[in-house]
Amino acid sequence: MTKPLVCARIVRTQNGAVHFSPTLDRLWKAASELGQPELLLLGNDLKLLERQAEGISGYSKVLIACTETGQALQVEMAAAVVSSLVKEHSSAEWSHILAETDSFGRELMAHLAARMMTALVTEVIAIEDANTFIRPVHAGVIQETVRVSQRDGEDELPVLITIRPTGFPVSDDLIQPTAPDSIQRLDTLSDNERVRVIDEHASPVADQDLTSAQVVVGIGGGVGDKEGVALIEQLANHLGGAIAATRTAVDSGLVSNDLQVGQTGRIIAPKLYFAIGISGAIQHLAGIKDAGAIVSINSDPNAPIHAAADLALAADLRQAIPELIAHISQRSETVLLDR
């Protein structure tokens, strides 16, 4: 049986906020289609990593690699540790190495691929077999199936994969609540002197779990100003949902960059997505195509978002949103979605 290794980061940022990958279970789901997954946790706070490792389910073995406490975790350090792990172990130890398709995972896997000269498949949404994967291209309009073949006449090298978490939803009962058989601490990650961190600002909302939120309210350029944003936040609160945004909303300073959804931001798949004051550009739609239902509220009846929506309302958001909030709180005795 093949054995995949999942790489994930769990870091504490300078201003004290803790960030861990909320998608460890989805990565497990993907990896378990390939074999019995093992996990490598990378970070900059050993206690945090150890606590996370003990509470983990599904992975038989957890490896931990940490920087000297507090020091930022960087891709070059992580790549060095993974490639030396692969070298140390017999070449057939891991059949695949997986990470999330986020900024860290993308960079780590590309770095490793060049270091080890081995195949990389990015943004996988489905696994057909150990060498065959499905991934979206052209802003998600097309799905392609790719097959990897490693070099002949050399040791079998692991196939590198980045996973799009929305492709691998998990139900709570899927993962056996078993602690790992072994937790192993690796040597301290050696410092990367080439790139130095000068300053860090954790996003105020990076902790909200946008990837697995059931209801998401998207803020578009039409939301206009901070007052509009406050209105949307109120709606999201009533719906128990998370907030997302378009590029335009980010650019105009309405919300922080990490909330951007779309081709070049995050990909989400909530049960219900509200697109508010959003025109419906192809680059934004790329990030929400897997939503269960899309509701659009846009004053322009010809806005393309209405054609992409399951329920389309041509209305001024400044009237429609307070009305919608009133509707929801009126019927607050009924629970929205079986969350």
Binding site: T13, H19, R196, V197, I198, D199
Partner: peptide
């Protein structure tokens, strides 16, 4: 990044 903003130097 998803975590916020950082300033790096090289």
């Amino acid at each position: 990044t998803e975590l916020g903003t950082e300033t790096l130097a090289l």
